[in-house]
Design a protein around this nucleic acid. Structure first.
Lengths: 160, 160
DNA sequence: GAAGTTTTGTTGACGCGTCAACCAACATGG
DNA sequence: CCATGTTGGTTGACGCGTCAACAAAACTTC
């Protein structure tokens, strides 16, 4: 049982600032979206994922994959969106377990109305606050951490 | 009505990577905490905030302030933690509306048991994946964005 | 082609978080 | 001292997210 390597002051400061930023940022963006377009942030992400496709449709498991969601989350959320008419579910012929999620016309209008305000908010609150170099640095760091999350190799594992 | 300034490819990439990292990271840490100590991530944050105080107590509104939570969230969450015996509520004498939240012995044991594993996970998944320079860069960027969130001045506002 | 496994999706229960409405106590200002 | 506003906290409803259990179709393998 090794000693606990607590975080240094600098490490803790960076970690806390990042956590705090994320929380505040998401809250602000969610509020802005809800106020200006009646969409929740997850709604927005689903609609973006769907409208990014030429046919505006995605299998449920693909949607979950793209967004990094658990399948049950995707199922629950799509269910709610169907109720509000933003998307529809269609059965899949080649795989009779499967289900397609398709944007409806209403969904398309909703995201087209929401996108400009959302992007403006992302700029105002985040992108335009940082220099391009800072943005790159943050992006690169995030990609490194993400890669480590996907690859479960522990830190400092020797090549052997 | 100005043109929409969409995100450039680089901006979008950084923004998405950051969002994704945050989601995955929080999920992983929450899972780890729950599995190893039966605490949720919010539980952990509350206990840290309380045990950081010499007397292990905080007014509810102070707790909300420290964690950046809405008061109703704090109230709900503390209520649940009281039920599980992790904290207790005490009435406040100088302000009879007020309520103190106090760590219980059980809460103290819980966080002492949870902390080493949690810190190790933060290291393994995040801190130790980045160079000290990257960590500083990320921390600084986060602090800039946070400062902008607190100060509602829009981007590029001239001094005038 | 039957048995076992993996994949796709749903469901229900339960904890979490926000919003809006509300209440009680403090503060201020005629 | 009453009116008015502000602050600290609670509550209920509702959407969100996870987990575990489940069902059914699709693969695999012998």
């Amino acid at each position: 049982m090794a000693e606990v390597r607590w975080l240094t002051e600098r490490e803790e400061r960076a970690w806390r600032a990042l956590q705090f930023m994320q929380m505040r940022l998401e809250a602000a963006l969610a509020r802005q979206l809800a106020a200006e377009s009646g969409l929740s942030y997850p709604d927005y992400l689903v609609l973006v994922a769907l409208t990014d496709r030429p046919d505006g449709r995605l299998r449920l498991y693909e949607l979950a994959g793209v967004l990094g969601w658990e399948k049950s989350r995707a199922s629950h959320h799509v269910g709610r969106m169907v109720k509000r008419g933003l998307v529809a579910k269609e059965t899949c012929d080649d795989d009779r377990r499967g289900a397609y999620v398709v944007v409806t016309e209403r969904g398309r209008r909703a995201i087209e109305a929401a996108a400009p305000g959302h992007v403006a908010a992302v700029r105002r609150l985040f992108v335009d606050r940082l220099t391009p170099e800072q943005l790159d640095a943050v992006g690169e760091a995030a990609e490194i951490v993400l890669a480590a999350l996907d690859d479960p190799t522990p830190t400092g594992t020797p090549a052997r």
